[in-house]
Amino acid sequence: MASEALGWLGVPLAIAAGTMRGGTPFLFVSLGECLTEKSGKINLGLEGTLLTGAMSAYAVSYLTRDSLGPMLAPFAGVLVAGLAGMVLGFIHGWLCQQPRVNDVAVGIAMIIFGSGVAFFFGKPFIQPSAPLLPTIDLLAWTDLPEQFQSAVKISPLFVLGVAIAPLMTWFFRSTRWGLFIRAVGDSPDAALAMGVSIFKVRMLSIVAGSFLAGIGGASLSLYYPGVWTELVSSGQGLMAVALVIFARWQPMQCLWASLLFGGAQALGPALQSVGITQGYYLFNAAPYVLTLVIMVITCSPTRTMTGVPGALGSDR
């Protein structure tokens, strides 16, 4: 049972916990979108991928809870979520590379398609309770109050996401495959001259990015908040796509931005719990206000949009 009240200390604690709890889906989707956009195509459909991932993860975890046991079933769910994301990514990757097809338009269609698929197949899974992912208790060995204990119950997916961010930075900067992706994204003609297949590179980037977004969905339904409902994402997939621009197409900055947005989600409720009851709509809007402020501060007429892949938004 909960012991002492934390008072004001609860606010930073809630924000810190919120970064890890609520930031994970942002992290995966933004990393996936970063990979996709580096190859020169945009995938707005990740909102649909997120929902499909959340639904399939929850469904698989629920359906396999007896055959695999409650420990393994959620991990099977995570894997299937990623695979489901890959299928959607494949459709997007193929469609948006057809002649005279606009990737933004296809992406919007994929949002509708992905969420439609998730809602259709997800109906029977709204009610049942699926086994959730186990958490890693960092402070289990200490005598700290229960509040701190639960704040640092972090998900293995969060650890995975945090590991992927620097790996992806290294991948883009120091590997031959990373170079291919950057080349295709910045200058498709040069890549073609190098003998790189633009179609294949983009397809692989989009599929891999969608795999990550699917896992982000699994984190929503199997870790936090840990349910499958049709409103579970509430636009987080789209926010994560915007977050990539905010992060200037750099994986490590995607990590910080995701943590920021995750923590900001906890701000409104946490402030109300300590008696700041006015303006909760304003606090709920905090992440957006923050984005605007940072965009205004960092923008400059001399070096606009540094880091944007050259072919992004063009039809090449």
Partner: peptide, 20 residues
């Protein structure tokens, strides 16, 4: 702030637990 915001509802519940 709205009828169905799963993440906010979970955060609100956790904040309450933190406050005893």
């Amino acid at each position: 702030g709205d009828w169905a915001l799963p993440v906010k509802e979970a955060e609100a519940t956790n904040s309450m637990a933190d406050q005893g």
